[in-house]
């Protein structure tokens, strides 16, 4: 039995023009051509999209989940960044 492994690829699909490519899953393939072909077979059997991106998984740099606190929590106490923080009389109308 061959135990040679193929690299893992992350698949991104754009469901229609005007929208972002969105991560849908991953697959194994020997090279980028085969990865795109497999992505078409595995992830777009029912008109899920009109464009495919594949990226080698080992090329993705991710933030450290252990540091989610210091990375993302500081945003929670900055409510003045949201429009609802500011009181404006109703009769001013939509703003």
């Amino acid at each position: 039995m061959s135990i040679e492994t193929t690299p893992l690829w992350e698949v991104f699909i754009r469901s229609r023009n005007g929208l972002n490519h969105k991560h849908v899953g991953s697959l194994h393939a020997a090279d980028s051509n085969l990865a795109v072909q497999s992505a078409r077979d595995v992830y777009t059997r029912r008109e899920e999209g009109n464009s495919i991106w594949v990226v080698r998984s080992d090329q993705i740099i991710a933030s450290d989940p252990d540091r989610s606190g210091e990375n993302f929590e500081p945003a929670a106490d900055k409510i003045y960044r949201h429009p609802s923080f500011y009181d404006i009389p109703d009769d001013v109308g939509h703003m």
């Binding site: 039995m1 061959s2 040679e4 193929t6 393939a29 020997a30 090279d31 085969l34």
Partner: peptide, 16 residues
């Protein structure tokens, strides 16, 4: 299926 597909996997890797 696994054994008979071995050459396809090998060929794809060699080509890559």
């Amino acid at each position: 299926a696994w054994d008979e597909g071995a050459w396809v996997r090998e060929a794809a890797n060699a080509f890559a």
